[in-house]
């Protein structure tokens, strides 16, 4: 299945939770925010929110800025 991850197509074997996706990408969940189909996913919901075929996922973090 294919999702759109940060604007680019990304292949996944099967649907998985936001927590599992972050783990697979080796991203520290504490330091990012995740949007699933334009809705912000609360950190407490990472284990219960499923990423499915065709979903649009944005993963953001803090970078230097003014």
């Amino acid at each position: 299945m294919t999702i759109t991850l940060n604007g680019d197509p990304h292949e996944l074997e099967r649907p998985l939770t936001v927590s599992a996706l972050l783990a697979q990408l080796e991203i520290d969940a504490r330091r990012v925010a995740v949007e699933l189909n334009l809705a912000v996913v609360k950190k407490v919901a990472y284990d219960s929110s499923m990423v499915k075929d065709g979903d649009e996922v944005e993963i953001v973090n803090f970078v230097g800025g003014g």
Partner: peptide, 18 residues
Amino acid sequence: VTVAVRRVDISRKTESLL
């Protein structure tokens, strides 16, 4: 301090600002 919100670079591991 101010920080900007940007997409995580999936393909490349970078140092965290934090």
